[in-house]
């Protein structure tokens, strides 16, 4: 294994190093092409073309303000109201950044979980069931079934199965975050975007959450923004390193952490950043 200083010979490292996933077992589900994101006149993302492999976990890392969260939120157009997103976002061959795409239908396929757990002020059961009801799933047994499966997949079922009527606001942080994951997967998305989902959790909850994510990847394509490099190393297959609005390096996670090609990446993953 190289130490980062071994490869850090000034002038010899490339400025960017992008290796898109090519694993035939895990074809691309989502990709960005020519993506530019503007907040007003300020350009927040200008080089961010990535391909995401199906049923794999891809981590987006980088310092705060590097654009990784903006990038993630652009993928299911959560930033539509505050930012201008140019370029194409290809989801299974369809550009979902076209104006006539129905964003609501699209977001059911590309779901999102946020930094701070945001359970609704409803019962645990209703947190999961109510979006389904709005989409016409009204049969009680069907709802029960989806609630149970989602909670099981999010590894929360055993803790809450006897108190599904309890207010979700009474859950602990880790439980609440897993409820949010259960809520997101209940609408059966294809891709799951997670924006630093563990940053508000204690170490035990974090490690439980990571286990959950590792299990979830057999069903979903997961893209996770994280500050925590150990976390990226533990759970992801691919890692993209963001710096000042660009993806500087993209490769398999093991490459990024053991053999980074770009000086800045190497500094960041070895903790010499800034």
């Amino acid at each position: 294994m190289f130490m980062s200083s071994d490869i850090a010979k000034p002038g010899t490292t490339p400025e960017r190093h992008i290796v898109q996933p090519t694993d035939a077992q895990h074809p691309t589900v989502l990709s960005t092409e020519g993506l530019h994101v503007f907040y007003g006149d300020k350009e927040a993302i200008y080089e961010g073309d990535l391909k995401f492999a199906r049923n794999q976990i891809t981590a987006l890392i980088g310092a705060s303000g590097s654009g990784k969260s903006t990038f993630l939120r652009s993928l299911n157009r959560m930033n539509d109201r505050i930012a201008t997103v140019k370029g194409r976002i290809m989801y299974r061959g369809v550009d979902i950044n076209q104006p006539d795409i129905d964003v609501y239908e699209m977001r059911r396929r590309i779901g999102m979980v946020f930094q701070r757990p945001n359970p609704f002020a409803k019962s645990i059961y209703d947190n999961i069931a109510f979006a389904l009801r709005l989409r016409g799933v009204t049969a009680k047994n069907k709802l029960d079934e989806i609630v149970e499966t989602s909670l099981r997949q999010a590894a929360l079922w055993d803790q809450v199965k006897d108190e599904l009527d309890k207010s979700a606001l009474a859950l602990s942080g880790g439980q609440a975050q897993r409820l949010c994951i259960a809520r997101a997967i209940a609408v059966k998305p294809d891709v799951l975007l997670l924006d630093e989902p563990a940053s508000a959790l204690d170490p035990v909850s974090t490690s439980q959450l990571e286990d959950t994510l590792l299990k979830l990847k057999q069903h979903y394509t997961i893209i996770i923004v994280t500050h925590n490099m150990q976390q990226a190393a533990r759970i992801s297959e691919y890692t993209a390193f963001f710096n000042q609005g660009r993806v500087l390096e993209y490769d398999t996670t093991s490459q990024i952490f053991t053999n980074p090609q770009v000086q800045v990446t190497s500094d960041y993953v070895s903790g010499n950043f800034g």
Partner: peptide, 27 residues
């Protein structure tokens, strides 16, 4: 009511109107 609640609704594929009437107003 925290904006995070609104994001939560939108991320589930709900419209802003559904989010407001079904999530924000009850809270």
């Amino acid at each position: 009511i925290d904006d995070k609640q609104r994001e939560g609704g939108l991320a589930l594929g709900l419209s802003r109107w559904e989010t407001v009437t079904r999530v924000i107003l009850p809270a």
